[in-house]
């Protein structure tokens, strides 16, 4: 977006000053700055990470969008690129990294695994979509999405940023945004918010087993 695009329609600018002056809203110029300097966090999870690296490399080169500064530290990153399969062992770290990112922060789920589990969804140690734990802004399906598909995902994200307003975004509200509780690795992955549910489920399972055992005993007795 150049200066011409930044100018709000309806304001005539003298031809001599065209290209030098734009009349616009604060929201618009603020978002314009932000969307052209989205710094992704440098971490890759699985196969998709390589397409992410390719997007950063010579041919697709996402530094053209002001994204070249891949930050290894979550504190300096604006965008978390969840590039690949999220496993139960990895999700506590991802949630922790997300909590550590300073706002405004965005999450882009890259590839079907990060979106909703992907081809490995049926497995026992794969999380069915990273959005089970952290809010996702843009989903890029594909296995893996080609670099151009990822770049399109960035374009979609930029559009989202463009339409935000300082007055409504969550990070300028008075109340603090609560941190997401970090999942715990128990016998299986446990979300601290769901302990009661898990307990009820396990209790029900035990009850079922008892009934089954009793049932089979009865059957045995009858036979």
């Amino acid at each position: 977006m150049g200066v011409e695009d930044l100018n709000l329609p309806g304001y005539e600018i003298p031809s001599a000053m065209k290209g030098n002056i734009a009349i616009t809203t604060l929201d618009r110029i603020y978002n314009w700055c932000r969307q052209n300097s989205v710094w992704p966090m440098m971490f890759g999870l699985a196969c998709c990470a390589f397409e992410m690296i390719c997007s950063a490399a010579s041919r697709f080169d996402f530094s053209r969008f002001g994204m070249e500064v891949m930050r290894p530290s979550p504190r300096q990153a604006d965008l978390m690129l969840v590039s690949g399969t999220v496993t139960k062992k990895m999700i506590p770290q991802i949630v922790r990294l997300y909590n550590q990112m300073s706002e405004p922060k965005y999450v882009l789920a890259m590839g079907s695994c990060a979106c909703g589990g992907g081809p490995f969804k049926e497995g026992y140690s794969v999380v069915s979509g990273v959005d089970k734990f952290i809010p996702v802004d843009v989903y890029v399906p594909g296995c893996p999405p080609t670099p151009q598909a990822l770049l399109h995902g960035f374009a979609v994200l930029r559009k989202k940023i463009e339409n935000e307003s300082i007055r409504t975004v969550r990070w300028y509200r008075k109340e603090a945004v609560p941190e997401i509780p970090i999942p715990v690795l128990g016998p299986d992955l446990m979300d601290p918010r769901r302990y009661a549910e898990i307990k009820a489920y396990a209790a029900e399972k035990a009850q079922q087993r008892e009934q089954e055992a009793a049932g089979s005993l009865n059957e045995g007795g009858q036979a």
Binding site: M190, Y195, A202
Partner: peptide, 26 residues
């Protein structure tokens, strides 16, 4: 359907019988 919709916990998780997460020490 999505696989999680059929699972009682709506997620890819399972626990042993009578398990109590509050007592779990990681």
């Amino acid at each position: 359907y999505r696989a999680e919709d059929k699972h009682p916990l709506k997620d890819n998780i399972d626990f042993p019988e009578g398990f109590d997460p509050a007592k779990w020490e990681a």
